[in-house]
Amino acid sequence: MTRPRSSVSKPPIAAVLKHYYSIDVKERAGWSKTLCPLHVEENPSASVSTEKDRWNCFVCQVSEDSIDVVMREEKLGFREAQAWAHARFGGSGENVLPAVQGESGRGVHQGSRPGGRSRKVHPRPRRFGADWT
């Protein structure tokens, strides 16, 4: 029997975005604007919520939580990403599911739209070291 995904402890989205993209997210209520880490832009098209531990980009139509980001960046399945995130970012560990050998994990959902159509995300160079505020 598998547990629902919502019962799994996840690392804070602020820590994950800082680790992968050098984006500093301040803890605050509501959604904060930020530059999208998946495409080059001058005006912020993404938002981050530290309350909901999610980020989304309105241009890419990508919405992810911290485990989704780890899965994409580390090319891991869901359970492997949980274990990796627990080892890297810590946590209680009581809700981390063990990896099952031979299980491929689930795919990252990008740009889910009504009617099942999705928009493909094209990786582009990221501007590391840029001012993300």
Results as ranks from 00 to 15, higher is better:
His19Lys: 08
Asp68Ser: 05
Ser66Gly: 00
Leu76Ala: 07
Asp53Lys: 01
Ser104Ala: 14
Gly116Asn: 11
Leu97Phe: 08
Arg117Ala: 06
Asp131Gly: 08
Glu41Asp: 03
Ile67Val: 12
Gln61Leu: 02
Gly115Tyr: 06
Glu27Pro: 06
Lys120Arg: 15
Leu38Ile: 09
Ile67Lys: 05
Thr50Val: 09
Val59Met: 02
Thr133Val: 08
Lys120Thr: 15
Pro44Phe: 00
His39Gly: 09
Gln82Thr: 08
Cys57Gly: 02
Pro37Phe: 10
Val70Ile: 12
Ile13Asp: 07
Pro44Asp: 10
Arg124Thr: 12
Val69Trp: 01
Asn95Met: 11
Arg28Ser: 13
Lys10Trp: 00
Glu42Asp: 11
Arg72Ser: 08
Ser32Trp: 05
Lys52Trp: 03
Arg126Trp: 05
Ser9Trp: 04
His122Thr: 11
His19Ile: 09
Arg126Thr: 01
Gly116Phe: 00
Val8Ala: 07
Ser104Asn: 05
Val25Asp: 02
Val121Cys: 03
Val48Ala: 01
Pro11Phe: 05
Asp53Phe: 01
Trp31Val: 02
Tyr21Phe: 15
Leu35Ala: 10
Leu38Gly: 04
Asp131Ala: 08
His86Asp: 09
Val25Tyr: 05
His19Leu: 06
Pro98Val: 15
Phe78Ile: 13
Lys10Arg: 15
Leu76Val: 02
